[in-house]
Computed example of a mutant assay.
Amino acid sequence: MKLTGADKRYLRKSAHHLNAPLQIGKEGINDNMLTQINEYLEKHELIKISVLQNNDDDMNELAMSLAQSLKAEVVQIIGSKIILYKKNYELKSSKYSLPSKSND
């Protein structure tokens, strides 16, 4: 699934009010964190992740690594926040109606 510009704008707007339930610290990403993020994405489809200042990883590389590991899409990287989206086809009703029809 590839998000269009319109999809990303819609998801950025939807994620604006979200709190970041998880933080990535100095230790970076581990298997437990990947499991937690994946479980959250299965329930909510959209997540905002906070990266703490003591993390020395490059934000773009970190976001791409997360997206690749979780089979998710990077919606936005802004400041110390990463927003990821992963469509869950098993949900009865998705919380997000993407503007592009190609993602249905």
Rank of each mutant, 00 (worst) to 15 (best):
M1K: 01
L3T: 01
T4D: 11
G5L: 11
A6I: 03
K8P: 00
R9C: 11
L11Y: 03
R12Q: 14
R12H: 08
K13G: 06
A15W: 00
A15D: 01
L18Q: 10
N19S: 14
N19F: 07
A20Y: 01
A20M: 03
L22G: 05
K26E: 15
E27M: 06
G28A: 08
I29N: 03
I29A: 08
I29G: 04
T35H: 09
T35R: 14
Q36M: 13
Q36C: 07
E39I: 10
E39T: 15
E39C: 10
Y40R: 06
E42G: 10
H44F: 08
L46P: 06
V51K: 06
Q53E: 13
Q53D: 13
N54K: 15
N55K: 07
D56T: 13
D58S: 10
E61F: 13
L62K: 04
M64W: 07
M64S: 09
S65I: 03
S65M: 15
S65L: 15
A67K: 04
Q68G: 14
S69H: 03
L70I: 03
K71M: 11
K71L: 12
A72G: 01
G79L: 05
S80H: 11
S80C: 10
Y85R: 00
K86G: 03
Y89W: 11
L91H: 08
L91I: 07
K92W: 12
S93T: 14
S94N: 09
S94G: 09
Y96M: 05
P99F: 05
S100V: 08
N103S: 12
N103E: 13
N103I: 07
N103Y: 04
